[in-house]
């Protein structure tokens, strides 16, 4: 069976070094390495999350934050249902970069994208350059989930993905219970229940 349609694609975007890969590795494998290497292009990871409402299979694109990859990011977010915009709370520049990512997603991203903002490296709060209130009110103004996280201490990581999972289920998806008993999440925009699944592609 085509298991991709059952997947909720999530993309992480943000400046180099803010901790995108660390967040994903904490979430997927519960590991953390302080000597983690910069991502090349993008990595794909998946993880199944069990919620009281059912199961969600996350397919996660962990993109590289290096500037030269910026123009390629579209390739990874084009099919996403949710985007996590990560900044480093000890780095003001990364916060501004995060806002630019949001702008780009509004202009070029998929419709009905769920956006979450993660203020990472919460464990370094004494070096904070962006106050939580500011980030929070920005998140509110764009209707995004906001979470302070630390990949290092686990703080907020589970919660971040859980809230995204719940929002995926609540807001914009039609959940069809398949015969196998697993939960299938499909985008409300591209598919309707009872309609033939195959979209003809003219060539």
């Amino acid at each position: 069976m085509d298991d991709n349609s059952a997947q909720a694609k999530v993309v992480l975007l943000g400046e180099a070094g803010v901790g995108k890969s660390s967040i994903v590795l904490r979430f997927v494998a519960d590991t953390y390495h302080s000597d983690i290497e910069p991502t090349i292009g993008a990595s794909f990871l998946s993880k199944i999350v069990n919620l009281s409402e059912g199961t969600i299979k996350f397919g996660i694109w962990d993109t590289a934050g290096q500037e030269r990859y910026h123009s390629l990011a579209r390739m990874y977010y084009a099919e996403a249902v949710a985007a996590i915009l990560v900044y480093d709370i000890t780095n003001r520049k990364s916060y501004e970069a995060m806002k630019n990512w949001h702008k780009e997603l509004v202009e070029q991203g998929p419709k009905n994208l769920i956006v979450a903002i993660a203020g990472n490296k919460e464990d370094l709060v004494e070096k904070e350059q962006v106050e939580m209130e500011e980030a929070k009110s920005f998140a509110e103004s764009i209707g995004a989930i906001y979470k302070k996280t630390s990949a290092k201490t686990r703080y907020g990581i589970e919660q971040l993905f859980k809230e995204i999972a719940i929002k995926i289920k609540d807001n914009r998806s039609i959940v069809t219970r398949e015969k196998r008993g697993s939960i299938r999440v499909t985008s409300a925009v591209s598919q309707q229940p009872g309609v033939a699944k195959e979209k003809k592609c003219c060539s």
């Binding site: 890969s21 590795l25 983690i36 290497e37 910069p38 991502t39 090349i40 292009g41 993008a42 990595s43 794909f44 990871l45 962990d62 990859y69 390629l72 390739m75 990874y76």
Partner: peptide
């Protein structure tokens, strides 16, 4: 030289100049 490629699967642009130096292919 990039051990980060070893931990998961990746989809990564690379320019192979003898194929084309004008754009990327994807690995």
């Amino acid at each position: 030289s990039h051990s980060s490629l070893r931990s998961t699967m990746s989809w990564t642009p690379i320019c192979l100049p003898n194929f084309s130096d004008k754009g990327f292919v994807y690995a």
